[in-house]
Simulated scan of single mutants.
Amino acid sequence: MPLFRRPAGLPTMGQEIVDFLRFVVRPRPGPRLGGRRAGSGMRADLGLNAPWWRLVHWAVLLWTLNLFVFAPLALSAADAGGAQHRLDIHNLPWMTALIWAPIVEELTFRHALRRPAMLWWFVPLMVSILVQGAGVASGLMAAAAVLLALAPAWYPAGHRWQAGWRLSWRGRRLMRRAYPLLFHVAALAFAAVHLFNFRLNAMALVLLPLLVLPQWVTGLVLGWMRVRRGLGASIALHAIFNGGPLLLIGLILWLAPELALG
């Protein structure tokens, strides 16, 4: 069997791009895309629901857009405002980029996109963990939060909404109306958090959105991926997306260590 054979029911990459663009214009907590283990249960939510190479395709698309379109705009804004990135190329944050950020940020900004009842208590919990940054205490808190996120898998179905995992019928109607706002606020908040990756140095406020334009676009794709495929897929895509640039930097410094001098 070919390694990259498209499973039955899996949309083409072009069809997924069209679906993403339509979704961004009109976000909705609709059904998942066809593919592996499509469904609404917790087990399906944690699966990739697509071959791994399809996630790589999306990562490559995002890298290309950022490299040739959005990153130049962000760099121009940084140069104009005097902002500096905090990344230390001598100490690349592999664990943070590949494990911490994908799990914690996806739970913070996108888990509630399919479970909005958790918006009022789970998101503040995750925000408090995110603010602390990677560490032992915050890691233990994140592990406890993951267990809470998985609670619907074993909690009695008839009582989940009472415990804050499911909305009432009226709550679902209200959330459906407000869903576009929820989706886009989550993407904007995700982008805004990445301003802390920079030393802003009194940068003009008008330039700040350009500085995190790549993260905003990436957040839109990750939000679509979370809703249309599941949390597992958005976490995996997030890790792949973060890992690519770090791997490139690591290879460059390994092959040409003189670039790290000075």
Rank of each mutant, 00 (worst) to 15 (best):
A142Y: 06
W254T: 15
A187F: 09
N49H: 12
F23G: 08
I89H: 02
W53A: 07
L251Q: 02
P11S: 06
A145H: 08
F198H: 02
E16L: 08
L182E: 07
A186S: 14
R173S: 13
M203L: 13
R228W: 10
A157W: 03
W169H: 11
L188E: 02
W254L: 15
N201E: 10
L48F: 15
L65V: 14
Q15C: 04
P156F: 04
A97V: 01
F20V: 06
G219C: 06
E258K: 07
A143H: 07
P31V: 12
P7G: 09
G171T: 12
A145V: 12
P180M: 04
A239T: 02
G243E: 04
G82H: 01
R6S: 11
A178N: 06
L210E: 05
L195M: 04
N201I: 01
W120A: 15
P29I: 06
M126K: 06
F68Q: 00
H184W: 13
M225G: 09
R160A: 07
L251G: 05
R170V: 13
W94H: 01
V56Q: 06
L33S: 14
R228N: 08
V25G: 10
V56D: 05
M42G: 11
S234L: 13
R173Y: 07
S76L: 09
W165Q: 04
V193R: 03
R28K: 06
A163W: 13
L205C: 05
P72H: 02
H194P: 01
R114K: 09
A191V: 04
Q84N: 00
L261P: 02
D19C: 09
N66W: 04
L261S: 13
L167C: 10
